[in-house]
Design a protein around this nucleic acid. Structure first.
Lengths: 222, 222
DNA sequence: ACTTGGCAAATGTGATCACACTGCACTATG
DNA sequence: CATAGTGCAGTGTGATCACATTTGCCAAGT
């Protein structure tokens, strides 16, 4: 039984078929979350369809789904753009992160083991490399991966799912801001997170995560 | 220029036209959030289209949007049902509520005034009436309206928006559980919330809201 | 030089259709 | 009587099309 010949993103062999609208959704979602699109970037259904080699229908469904998650903004006339966040909205999203992430960290702490911490350490080093190379996309990607690796251990899919929509909304803005101020030092509180994990100290972990989140985003608003 | 003759939900005169998919979205959303559909209830695109007198296209977009918000579940083959939540997931959603709602209450407290408290008092009385009549839909509706009336004053649209998706996910399950155990007393902590508001006591308000949320949902799981 | 008008291209919306797959009931078989 | 096989109605998916609206540009007038 031969596979399909052309496949733009190579299909994970376990996924059954992956519908077209889902492939488009995943592709756009990653671009947005990793900050590959600047805030206010305009998209068109026909353009998206062309890029993924599908018709407007799956493109529309992917856009509808992403806009429901706050990853895209629809104008009154239906035009599609990445969101341009006001300072108030950035602060709200930071507040949500600072409420949810310490809780996820705490839940993960009880289930954490050494291999997990080692993995986070490796991701953190990749993150530092991205900082040195002034590579915003890889910086954001490894930063999120650092946090997600920890939170996956929390076994709390509903909370993590909600949190990912918050990350999504911040993607374009974070990328633009990081690009603008060209930071040269990696996030300092990642070390505190790792130390608290090793020590099994719940209170210290919650504080380190909250500080990492709020410091990281406060740094950006100036 | 004559309007369309048949219109199931009468169009608010200020809204320009309201696209078909948006009308379908709003209609389904309200049914789900108010608990008019039991958990696991199956829907079909053609059925939705028929109910709202549109084709499958707007029905599909509304479903896609709602499933992105967790208000509907899509099976692997694309079948549409209202979600059947596990106990773990209910607990996660309760945790999210208990994190976000006290924060919203606190933000609203600074801006609260007497007319707001009076309005909440009136809603709370309507809520008590729904309890006496064993009317789950109106119970849920007035309960949510009580909380939303307060949180709207927080001027935090991003947090409130996220919270509403949590309410959405809980709608069918809450309705089923309330129907099953036929509670006879209104939520007792609503009074505490009102008293804390009148006293301007932030700590007491946060505690009352957290207790209202967790007690209300703990009551349901048994 | 700046504003205003209008026209053409581009865009989102919704309907319709063909198709493949699923789920279910009915039937034939052990 | 129970069970596996079969076919049909039902369902979601994706492409295509017509249409109304919007957008952006270019020209004409002040």
């Amino acid at each position: 039984m031969p596979e399909t010949m052309t496949r733009m993103p190579p299909n994970p062999p376990d996924a059954p078929v992956q519908a077209a609208h889902d492939r488009v959704y995943r592709g756009l979602r990653q671009q947005i979350m990793h900050g590959e699109l600047p805030p206010g970037h305009a998209l068109t259904l026909r353009g998206i369809g062309k890029a993924f080699d599908v018709s407007m229908t799956p493109a529309r469904e992917a856009v509808r789904r992403l806009s429901a998650e706050g990853a895209l903004t629809l104008s009154a006339s239906g035009r599609v753009t990445t969101p341009e966040l006001s300072n108030d909205r950035i602060e709200e999203l930071a507040q949500i992160r600072s409420l949810l992430e310490p809780e996820l960290g705490s839940r993960a702490l009880r289930r954490a083991h050494l291999a997990l911490i080692d993995r986070m350490e490796a991701i953190n080093e990749a993150n530092a490399r991205a900082v040195n190379l002034h590579d915003p996309v890889n910086y954001i990607r490894t930063n999120l991966e650092f946090h997600r690796t920890l939170y996956l251990r929390a076994q709390s899919p509903a909370i993590l799912g909600l949190l990912e929509t918050v990350w999504l909304q911040l993607g374009p803005t974070m990328s633009a801001l990081y690009t603008r101020l060209r930071r040269t030092t990696p996030p300092p509180y990642h070390r505190h997170i790792l130390e608290a994990l090793r020590a099994g100290d719940d209170a210290a972990l919650r504080l380190a995560i909250r500080t990492d989140v709020t410091q990281g985003l406060r740094h950006l608003q100036g």
